[in-house]
Amino acid sequence: MLRDPITDVHSDAWWMRVCEGALSPQEEADWQAHLAQCEACRREWTALAQVDMLLRTATPPPMLAPDFTAHTVERITHKQKLRQMLQFVVGALILGLVAWIGWAYFGAVLSNAVRALVVMISGRQVLFAALMRTLVGLAVMIKSLLPLLLGIAGAALLFLTPNSILASVMVVWYARRKRAAATAA
């Protein structure tokens, strides 16, 4: 038959209640009666009481050395500075690594983009230079074709406006004839 661990005076649960002073008056009386009869429990209870007395009356540990605080604070501040420096170095390394990986993967794209950006910036200069080259080229070409151009222009003028030329020739002929007659008279 199983015994209830709470009321079994040999169970750990009972002994823990005894140590905590959690027994009812009736249980306390039963416990004292049991101790009077049971040599093993009495011996253990006495030993537990001795342990408790020893622990409660133990002298406190010695005091710390006077320089303990200063030495500890010094070590802490040193470690904090070291940690900050380490964090900075690690951060810089990570940044460098990310930049390196980024350049390896996206370097070509970035390079093209940079080039395009340069072209955009220098576009105006390029356009101006091209315009100037075109004008110079045109001037050179015009100089070499000038006689032909003048001939074509004269022919066009003659072809397009024959009456005005004929009139001009007649006026010039009449003016010369009048001058010759005046000279003869």
Partner: peptide, 21 residues
């Protein structure tokens, strides 16, 4: 240690003492 007779922990005056409040 009591059984071995080398008890340096004091006498048994604490016997039957209720030690934990």
């Amino acid at each position: 240690s009591n059984t071995l007779g080398s008890n340096t922990l004091g006498s048994n005056t604490m016997e039957e003492e209720r030690y934990v409040a």
